[in-house]
């Protein structure tokens, strides 16, 4: 009699067909990220901003640092699409070149913080005990230093702040947050069976950290790195606005807005300060949306299946 109820399995195949494409954890995360419309749109917009900033010499032939005191506070014209500032410099060129500085400051401060934070957090979380106590108390000491006062003091001592010094100050004062996150993640990973398994095969500490801990801690690290970058762009703008950031004539979005400290420009030349303000707003929003998207995509709880 014919069997209509029980599907007859082909003896050569099991549940998973051999042709089925295998998806790596990275591909799974990418799939989840692409489902997040805001995050994808943000990547797109950020890409446009970054390319415009990188292609600045192609988009304008004006020099962003060249003053022309005969052409101060001009309204928009064909030659100066966004007019000129109080020193007669082209606002459009400054917007593009300034974006370079703002993004570079945000990005390099993020990378620098990441380097310190991940290394110290990894050591503290992996070795625990005395090493951990020492690093975390040191982190606590850094955390209580008031960032703003520290910057003011350093600027006062050095007289002139370069991008390098500025980035260093940010990184040296803001690594403790990331260190805590990495340490916490490592502490929880330390108790996992697969880490014991790695020890059982005789893997070295370095191998365990780089092959087992960091790939499993990459989610929180990446998410926090993006959010850090956004906040560093704001920090740069805020400090430049009050005159303690990257000094003139180097353009940044922050010190372009500081033009608006003059009530005359604030009222009469909105084209001078609205674009850099918008640029900061859009960039930071985009980075934050991307961070949120990454958080959902890399959440270890959704990694199973």
């Amino acid at each position: 009699m014919e069997n209509n109820y029980i599907p007859v399995a082909d003896p050569g195949t099991s549940q998973i067909a051999p042709e089925e494409k295998s998806r790596t954890p990275f591909q799974l995360a990418l799939g989840r990220f692409l489902k997040n419309k805001m995050a994808v749109a943000s990547v797109f917009i950020l890409f446009i901003i970054v390319s415009a900033v990188m292609a600045a010499p192609l988009l304008t032939d004006q020099d962003p640092t060249k003053s022309n005191l005969l052409l101060v506070e001009q309204s928009p014209s064909a030659e100066h699409p966004l007019g000129t500032d109080s020193s007669g410099r082209d606002n459009f060129a400054r917007l593009l070149y300034g974006g370079r500085i703002s993004l570079i400051v945000g990005f390099s401060a993020m990378v620098f913080t990441l380097a310190i934070g991940v290394v110290l957090g990894a050591i503290a979380g992996y070795y625990g005990k005395l090493v951990d106590a020492f690093i975390m108390r040191f982190a606590d000491m850094i955390l209580i230093l008031p960032f703003l006062v520290l910057v003011l003091v350093i600027v006062a001592i050095l007289n002139k702040v370069t991008i390098g010094i500025f980035v260093t100050i940010i990184a040296l004062t803001s690594w403790p947050g990331l260190t805590r996150i990495v340490r916490g993640t490592f502490l929880s990973l330390r108790e996992q069976e697969f880490v014991l398994g790695a020890k059982a095969i005789g893997a070295t500490d370095l191998r365990i950290i780089f092959k087992h801990f960091i790939p499993n801690a990459i989610g929180p690290i990446v998410v926090n790195a993006t959010l850090m970058m956004a906040s560093y762009i704001i920090v740069e703008s805020a400090l430049s606005f009050i005159g303690f950031g990257i000094p003139q004539p180097t353009p940044t979005w922050g010190n372009m807005i500081s033009e608006a400290q003059s009530i005359r420009i604030l009222q009469n030349n909105p084209e001078a300060w609205i674009p850099p303000g918008l640029a900061i707003l859009v960039t930071v929003l985009c980075i934050n949306f991307i961070g949120d998207g990454l958080r959902d995509a890399l959440d270890p709880k959704s990694l199973e299946r």
């Binding site: 295998s22 790596t24 954890p25 996992q192 069976e193 697969f194 014991l196 398994g197 790695a198 059982a200 095969i201 005789g202 092959k211 087992h212 790939p215 499993n216 990694l303 199973e304």
Partner: peptide, 22 residues
């Protein structure tokens, strides 16, 4: 060197394999 000769199989097949490695 001794670990070559002695191994362990854990209880939880979900926690004992690093999900980031194939």
């Amino acid at each position: 060197a001794t670990r070559r000769d002695m191994q362990i199989i854990f209880q939880d097949p979900f926690a004992s394999l690093n999900s980031k490695m194939n």
